[in-house]
Amino acid sequence: MPADRPRLRAGAILGRPVHDREGRLIGRVADIETRRDEAGRERVTALVVTAGRWGRLLGYERREAGGPWLLEQLARVVLRRHLTRVPWPDVRL
């Protein structure tokens, strides 16, 4: 995470609109990807953005999520079709 970024709570990010570099709306934040740094702190690495009406996606937006076959198919067809993974340095909230 760049040093000039302020500290934010997840609740302040989820649901916010995200724009691309040209200012066009990509969608709204549905999930936050993090990774633990060498000091043991969680750092944001990317945002999962959805162009659809879905808010929180219950984890099924991730390809590695497992579950009952029917829920996996629903996630593949409905939830994942409008997802975009935006790396944190490219985020414009």
Results as ranks from 00 to 15, higher is better:
Asp20Ser: 10
Pro6Asn: 00
Asp90Trp: 14
Gly11Ser: 09
Val49Leu: 01
Leu79Trp: 04
Ala12Cys: 05
Leu47Trp: 02
Arg81Cys: 04
Arg28Val: 08
Arg28Trp: 06
Ile13Ala: 05
Ala51Phe: 11
Pro2His: 08
Leu70Lys: 07
Glu22Met: 08
Arg43Lys: 12
Ile26Leu: 15
Pro17Cys: 08
Ile32Val: 13
Gly59His: 09
Leu71Trp: 13
Val44Ala: 12
Ala51Tyr: 04
Ala75Cys: 03
Val18Gly: 03
Arg36Ile: 09
Glu64Ile: 08
Gly55Leu: 08
Thr45Glu: 09
Arg41Phe: 12
Pro6Arg: 05
Ala46Cys: 11
Gly15Ser: 09
Glu64Arg: 14
Leu58Ala: 10
Glu61Val: 14
Ala30Thr: 15
Asp90His: 14
Arg35His: 06
Arg28Ser: 11
His19Gly: 00
Ala10Phe: 13
Arg36Thr: 15
Leu58Lys: 12
Gly15Tyr: 07
Val77Glu: 06
Ile32Gly: 00
Ile26Ala: 04
Gly67Trp: 07
Leu93Thr: 14
Pro2Gln: 10
Arg81Asp: 07
Ala3Ser: 15
Val18Phe: 03
Gly66Asn: 12
Arg35Met: 07
Glu61Arg: 12
Leu93His: 10
Val86His: 03
Pro17Asn: 10
Arg43Thr: 14
Pro17Leu: 00
Leu57Tyr: 07
Leu57Gln: 14
Val44Ser: 02
Arg41Tyr: 13
Arg7Ile: 11
Arg7Asn: 07
Arg80Ser: 07
His19Cys: 04
Arg5Ile: 02
Val77Gly: 08
Pro6Ala: 00
Ile13Glu: 00
Pro87Ala: 07
Gly52Leu: 12
Gly11Asn: 03
Gly23His: 06
Arg41Ala: 15
Gly11Cys: 08
Arg62Ile: 01
Gly15Cys: 11
Leu14Ile: 15
Ala12Glu: 15
Val77Trp: 10
Gly52Ile: 09
Glu22Leu: 10
Val49Gly: 00
Thr84Arg: 14
Ala75Leu: 02
His82Pro: 04
Arg9Trp: 01
Val29Leu: 01
Ala12His: 13
Arg21Leu: 06
Val29Ser: 01
Asp37Arg: 11
Arg28Asn: 10
Pro87Gly: 09
Arg62Glu: 04
Arg56Ile: 05
Pro87Lys: 01
Glu64Asn: 06
Ala3Pro: 03
Asp4Gln: 04
Arg62Gln: 11
Arg5Ala: 02
Thr34Met: 12
Ala10Tyr: 12
Pro6Tyr: 04
Glu42Gln: 13
Glu72Asp: 11
Glu38Asn: 12
His19Asp: 03
Val49Ile: 07
Ala75Gly: 09
Leu47Arg: 01
Tyr60Arg: 11
Pro2Met: 09
Trp69Gly: 02
Gly40Pro: 15
Leu57Gly: 10
Pro6Trp: 01
Arg63Cys: 05
Val44Asp: 01
His82Asp: 14
Gly52Asp: 14
Val18Glu: 01
Arg80Phe: 04
Arg76Trp: 06
Arg76Ile: 02
Arg21Ile: 10
Leu74Thr: 12
Glu61Tyr: 07
Ala46Gly: 06
Gly67Pro: 00
Ala75Trp: 00
Gly59Tyr: 12
Arg62Thr: 05
Ile13Trp: 03
Gly23Pro: 02
Glu42His: 15
Gly27Thr: 05
Arg7Asp: 10
Ile32Trp: 00
Arg56Trp: 15
Ala12Ile: 03
Leu71Tyr: 10
Ile13Leu: 15
Ile26Pro: 02
Val48Gly: 03
